[in-house]
Amino acid sequence: MSFTEWLDRNRDQVRELAIQHADLCLTAVVVAGLLGVALGVLAHRSRLATAAAQAGTSVVFTVPSLALVGLLIPVTGLTRDTVLVMLVLYALVPIVRNTIAGLRSVDGAVLEAARGMGMGPVRLLLRVQLPLAWPVILAGLRVGTQLVLGLGAIAVYVTRIGLGVLIDAGLARFGMPNSVNQALAGTLGVAVLAVAFDLAWQVVGRLTTPRGIRA
C-alpha cells in the first residue's frame, strides 16, 4: 500500500493523534513561556541569578530527555503530567536564556532616558524593556516550540499519546506491511506540526513586534 493510500484510510487516527500532540506541546509552550519569561525577568537583574539560571538551564539541556523522564516517573507516574513537566523543562532552556539575553541587550541609554522621564520599574519593564527584548524572547519561544514538538514523540514511552504512538507502532510491526507507512506518518506528522507552529510564531511575531525594531 502506498503512503497516501495508507494515510487516506487512517486519516481519523492520524488527525486525532496530531491534535493530541499539538495540544500537549502547546500547553507545554504556554506554561514554559509564562514561567520562562518570569524567571528571565527575575534573573536578569542580578549577575548571580543570571549565572544560576544559565547553569541550571545548561544542566537541563544536557540531561537526555529519556533520562529526565526516567527521573520524573517515580514522582509523577506514567502520566501525561510527567511528559508535560519534561517538555516544560526543556522549553524553559531557550526561553529563559533568550529572555535574559534580550533584556540585557536593551541599550542602557534608553533605560536611563525612560527613568529620567519618571517611569517606575514596572512601567519601565512593560513599556520599554519587554517590547525591546521581544524579538529575542520570541526567538527563544520558537526554538522552545521546535524542541518540544520533537521531544513530544517520545511521550509514547510514558503514556500512549501523541504522534509518537504511530512511530512506536511502526517499530513494533517491524517487517510487517505498513510498518514504514505508520512510522513515516508519525515522523512527518511531527515535522508538519513543527513547520505549522513556526509559521504561527512568525505571524505572532509580525503582529506583536513594534514596527521600529522589526528586522
Binding site: 521546535q146 514538538l149 520533537g150 521531544l151 513530544g152 514523540a153 517520545i154 504522534l163 509518537g164 512511530i167 512506536d168 511502526g170 517499530l171 517491524f174 510498518s179 514504514v180 512510522a183 513515516l184 508519525g186 515522523t187 512527518l188 511531527v190 515535522a191 513543527a194 513547520v195 513556526d198
Partner: peptide, 18 residues
C-alpha cells in the same frame, strides 16, 4: 534547519525499518 524539525525518534525508527 527545517530537517531538524523531524523528530529524532522517528528518524531512528525509519532508518531501522529500512
Amino acid at each position: 534547519g527545517v530537517g531538524q524539525a523531524v523528530p529524532a525518534y522517528g528518524v531512528m525508527v525509519l532508518l531501522t525499518l529500512r
